[in-house]
């Protein structure tokens, strides 16, 4: 009996999530705006349903965890656009690396300064730090440096939604012409959502964004022990 209830729960929430996502995509294709964007439209309605039904996050995620796990194979899928742009990447790997390092340093410094400016506590600041990375990386780094991975995953999504929109606006008003700078801007600032937006602009920009996203994640996971050390000494002066 109990097992059946779990199964019904899982099927219900999975179907609802997928259906609302499909509806959001459909509406967004008809009338593109921030509010019909699947990353805003779908979660807002899901949260409304969950609040009405008094459903907690643990109950929801138990049934829909498999959807989140598909971020794994989606990351694997980035191998294809990266491979297709291998000539461009081989020619400019140094520039991309410079962009990734500059962006990552800016991410750490800006998160720290802004958190301080707005009076956020240390745990929140640490959970905010890895938000520009794609989810599997961000959760790893967040745990490593002493943040709350569940909070970080929320911040990652918010960053994606805001970043993909702002990124497009920025690209329209900043004088960056090369696909390298344009792709890196989106991949660095807004991970997967930014990369999806970049693919809409141009496949070359999209491939760069995808590569930068993976590079940022790698660089940060590898430097997480160092980052944790820097963060813990910075916390003394919080």
């Amino acid at each position: 009996m109990w097992c059946d209830e779990l199964l019904i729960h899982a099927v219900f929430w999975s179907l609802l999530t997928v259906a609302l996502y499909a509806l959001g995509k459909f509406l967004n294709a008809r009338r593109p705006s921030l509010f019909t964007s699947p990353l805003v439209f779908t979660p807002v309605l899901l949260i409304a349903v969950a609040l009405i039904g008094h459903v907690r996050y643990a109950e929801y995620i138990r049934g829909t965890h498999w959807l989140m796990m598909l971020l794994g194979p989606a990351t694997v899928a980035f191998a294809i656009p990266i491979y297709e742009q291998r000539v461009l990447i081989r020619r400019h790997w140094m520039l991309l690396l410079i962009g990734v390092v500059a962006g990552s340093c800016t991410a750490v410094i800006s998160s720290w300064l802004l958190s301080k400016l707005f009076g956020l506590d240390a745990t929140l600041c640490l959970s905010l730090l890895p938000r520009s990375m794609s989810t599997p990386f961000a959760m790893t780094v967040s745990g490593d440096i002493g943040g709350v991975p569940a909070l970080t995953s929320v911040f990652v999504v918010i960053t994606g939604v805001l970043g993909a929109t702002i990124g497009e606006l920025l690209l329209n008003c900043l004088p960056f012409r090369s696909a390298l700078a344009r792709g890196a801007l989106l991949g660095m600032g807004a991970h997967g959502a930014g990369t999806a937006k970049a693919h809409q602009i141009d496949s070359e920009v999209g491939a760069i964004a995808g590569l930068v996203m993976v590079l940022v994640g790698l660089l940060n996971v590898l430097s997480a022990p160092l980052l944790a050390h820097v963060v813990s000494s910075a916390l003394h002066s919080w």
Binding site: A50, Y57, M68, E84, V154, G160
Partner: peptide, 28 residues
């Protein structure tokens, strides 16, 4: 590449769906 390209395109096109469940952590 033709053995994986269409599959990869599907994953990349639907990637936003996989981000959505995480947002509901706000409930907690």
């Amino acid at each position: 590449i033709l053995t994986v390209r269409r599959g990869a395109q599907w994953f990349l096109a639907e990637m936003l769906l996989f981000f959505i469940p995480a947002v509901l952590a706000v409930l907690d």
